[in-house]
Design a protein around this nucleic acid. Structure first.
Lengths: 184, 184
DNA sequence: TCAATTAAGTATCGAATCGATATTGATAAC
DNA sequence: GTTATCAATATCGATTCGATACTTAATTGA
């Protein structure tokens, strides 16, 4: 077992996961990437709900993400809203239909398989998190962590505040994924 | 960090690896999957050099693999040979040009990144191997291990023998990937 | 013996993805 | 102001991949 084969292992795992996901998705008339997008939108904050952030998160090209979003919009699962300050930007949000189908798709056999794989010990999860972080660093990609674990996350007498945007953050905000997430 | 997100982590790692590989590949006029195929062919034994085994190894569909092989054949990188016993089967082999381009593509930045990720301790690699094995088991896919680590691998006074096919195995055979690989 | 079944591989079509280019809006320089 | 530059996104052609149907060959089982 040589070190260099780890990439090969990851790619093969991904292929297996995808083919398994595809089975579930075809019943709903979707592709795996569509669920990934909607799952992300359900878990990201207002700084990270743009096509650009999605592109970065998924590691795909802008063109591909744009096409995916068009399809999801046409199906009535997501909505695009122009930014009021910067009209180049688009904010994405999950519509009710999208949320419904996402919840229908989520609890699958995949999850029971996952627990089978990772029932031994907790530290195994960290290996995957660390590996992804290292890859993102090598790729100059953001880490996409939870808001409340960011170094700019600040607790004041007034509540939570983002040290980057200086804006106030609700409890719910702090639990979401942020593309600007920074560690240490 | 919930357990169920591990699949998401793996898919995102794979996406990053692919986009990185793609950069190297486009220079050579190839796709990531083409290198995967040729790499596999350079490392598999005579029981595992068929389109069906490749399909299983890569987790793709037969049709997709067939297309990929057609292209590689047209480019003169691989060769197809009909099986003498079972004329449904095709054996694949890497041609000189294929081997050349494979070696040109192999030593990339990816490998130095890999060592960065896994320089801490050896046991991390096992986490990935175990995860893939668990997924393959859930997917009823073969494990594709090295011949000499298979439970049917036998050492006789005459040399190495495969307990399944009863055929003799050379030193080189024993170092290759076999689709019939069985553990314990 | 011969029809049914299974397996390996191929062909075709549509959807998904990539890469390049174009478009639009914001920002900076002059 | 006007122009240059950059950033965010959209558009388009080419390619890849998956689903399905099909061909050919081996196997099974009355």
């Amino acid at each position: 077992m040589e070190k260099v084969d780890v990439f090969d292992l990851i790619e093969r795992m991904s292929a297996l996961i995808r083919s398994e996901e595809r089975k579930k998705c075809t019943e709903l008339g979707l592709q795996p990437v569509h669920l990934q997008v909607m799952d992300y939108l359900s878990r990201c904050n207002r700084y990270s709900d743009t096509p650009a952030a999605l592109t970065n998160y998924l590691g795909m090209t802008r063109g591909t993400v744009s096409q995916t979003l068009l399809l999801l919009e046409k199906k009535g699962y997501i909505k695009k809203t122009a930014d009021v300050n910067d009209r180049r930007m688009v904010h994405l949000s999950l519509l009710v239909d999208g949320d419904t189908i996402l919840n229908k798709a989520r609890p699958t056999d995949l999850y029971s398989q996952a627990s089978t794989i990772f029932n031994e010990n907790e530290s195994q999860e960290n290996v995957f998190v660390n590996a992804l972080t290292a890859l993102q660093k090598a790729n100059k990609s953001q880490s996409f962590g939870l808001c409340k674990t960011c170094k700019y996350f600040t607790i004041t007498s007034d509540g939570f505040v983002c040290g980057l945007t200086k804006e106030r953050l609700s409890q719910i905000d702090s639990e979401k994924i942020c593309q600007e997430h920074t560690v240490s």
